[in-house]
Amino acid sequence: MTTSLLRQVACAGAVDHALLEHVRHEALTVPSGWMAEYGEYQSGGWETLSLLNRTGRATDVTITDCEPTETDLLAAMPATRQLLADLGLHFMWARIARLDAAAYLWEHRDYGELKDVERHRLHIPIVTSSSAYLVLSGSAVHLAAGHIWRLTPTYAHGACNRFGPARVHLILDCYASPELAVLTRDQYLPAGSVRPLPPLTDALLRHHAAQALRLAQLGYAKAAEEHLLRLFFDHTLPEGRAYDLIADMYDAIGHDDAADGWREKKAVLLGIN
């Protein structure tokens, strides 16, 4: 379990405490005009700005392969600029990302649309809490502040910030390089960072499916969908099971188009051909 999880997410090093405090101050005071990203893979409340990107404009946030330049935002954040420079990595893109309270990035895979080049994603948590965590392979992984975390986002995963406060991370997409190899040489999962999620028993499954069905029948279809999507963050589920449950719910109330729509969405989000 731990070995498999280590391939997907791991702590790759620490950030200097004093520097992190300055980065945190900048992160909470400098960025404005956050770009809300909307998409089928998330609930809302996911906002980003670019620090390094193709155009130098912080509001260009759709990542793509490039040799990036510093954005106007990073120029106004000297401690953050120093932190990135000290890492000495071959960056593809760097963003500051905010995940608001009650915001979810549903189960999905990343990088599917990008060209086939080895790349890695690092997270540096700036502001976080225990209710902000990733879910991978049936485990909740809290990325504690003060560390650099490596995430391999081609595995199915999700992220949430259940109750707040707003989570703020630096997200660094980088190409393979000797510096990255050194940084990620000794990877580990700190004690207390991983919480195995309990299985969804048949009784619980029936309970939640019935709750969702009632919500949908009362006219709260979106709440019903979210109720089922959130099961991925509370329980160990087979890949894509939450999407199947939504499709089943719509089948049960005769909404065939909605059921088909969720089956298609599942294929897109999980990169299933």
Binding site: A101, R162, G164, Q211, L218, K222, R230
Partner: peptide, 21 residues
Amino acid sequence: TAFEEFVTVHDALASTTLGAI
């Protein structure tokens, strides 16, 4: 006629749409 159903799901509704912690 929907009262019992509504009471039964209102916690789930509060959690998913109203931001109940």
